[in-house]
Structure formats: C-alpha cells, structure tokens
Amino acid sequence: MQTDEFSSDHLDVLKELMNIAMGNATASIADLLQAFGTMHIPHLTITDMDGLKKYIDEALKYDEKYYVTKQLFGGIIGGEFIFVMTDESAANLGNYLYDVSQPNDADIMDAVIELTNILSSTIISRLTEELKTKVQFFAPSTEIISGNHLIGDEDTLNYHKIIIVSTVMEFQSHKISGQIFILARDETIIRLRELIDQKLEELYA
C-alpha cells in the first residue's frame, strides 16, 4: 500500500485518538500506581522495515541497556505494543512499586510488565473503542536488550508497511520514563484506514 493512501486527515485522526488514549493511560497510571505523568504529543509515521530501523536508531542509544516489553494484540486490528525503558528508569520503577531500594531483576521485570500492561490495555482499548472495535491481549514478555537491537534481523521479514506510533511517558517525580512503539502491518493499516474513513464520514455527514 502507498503511504499517500493514508492522508494527512487519516494521520490527524489517528494522532488525536492516540492523544486521547494516552490521556487515559496517564490517568490510569495516576489512579492505579499513584504516579503523575506529563503528556507528550504522539508521533506518527508510516514506513517500511528500513525506516523502522532508522527510526529506532535515532530514538534509542546504542550503548544503553533497555528493558523492552512486547505485547501482542489481535482482532480486527492487531499488532505489537512495545514499551522501552532504560535500565535506570526500570530500576526506579521496580524500586517504586516494590518499596525496596535494591529491586532484583525479577522485581524490575514484573514492575515493567505491570506498567506496560496498564499502558497497552488503556491505550489500545481506548483506541479501539473510538474505532468501535475490540481486541484481545496476549501475555507480554520482557527482555533486556543492549543498544538499539529492538528488532532482530529475522523479524524484519514479517512486516512490509509499518505504522509507528511513538510517544514518551514521563513520571518526573519518580525519574521514570519510557518510549512507546505501536507497530502494525499491512492488513491492520488497511483496516485502520477503513475505520478512520467511517469515523470521518460520520463527522462530515
């Protein structure tokens, strides 16, 4: 599919929906984890695998250690929700959620999973609710990755066109921040466009 099939109107709609979804996520975290966040404008790009690699190279530092949590979601639209935190942020989160100054790796992993869980379910649920559809979530998994090898070379074969929604989640008082990537491929992008078209039709009707 061509990028131009996704017009600036489509992108605007998706961006606004993401914005609302992010607002919900921030509020959920404030409510459930008592951490108050600063919202940032989400960034949207439609690209290919090389573009994604370039994007990740720019977004992440190659000499930093990251906790990367990936959670799959599926339904009418499906894809991968990826939450990336530096090990410092992850340790701060583990410390905050488990009341220990030196959280062990398992504590940190679980804390990262918990935050990702809240983020992904609120963001994706809100997004899909606005688009009047539903998705199913799968168990997330976290791995520690050095540098910006977020996506292995063998993974690149499975995606053609990719939509990247990225934003920063920041909880300054706890020195916790992370980057969110939502990756979706061809079929989802087409379906997403159809759903947005429906929404736009309603609006202009």
């Binding site: 914005n19 607002g23 919900n24 921030t26 404030a30």
Partner: peptide, 8 residues
C-alpha cells in the same frame, strides 16, 4: 478540553 485527565 484535554486528553490529559489526571486530577493534577
């Protein structure tokens, strides 16, 4: 009118 619905 905001997406940021945190009380603060």
């Amino acid at each position: 009118v905001s997406a940021d619905i945190q009380t603060h």
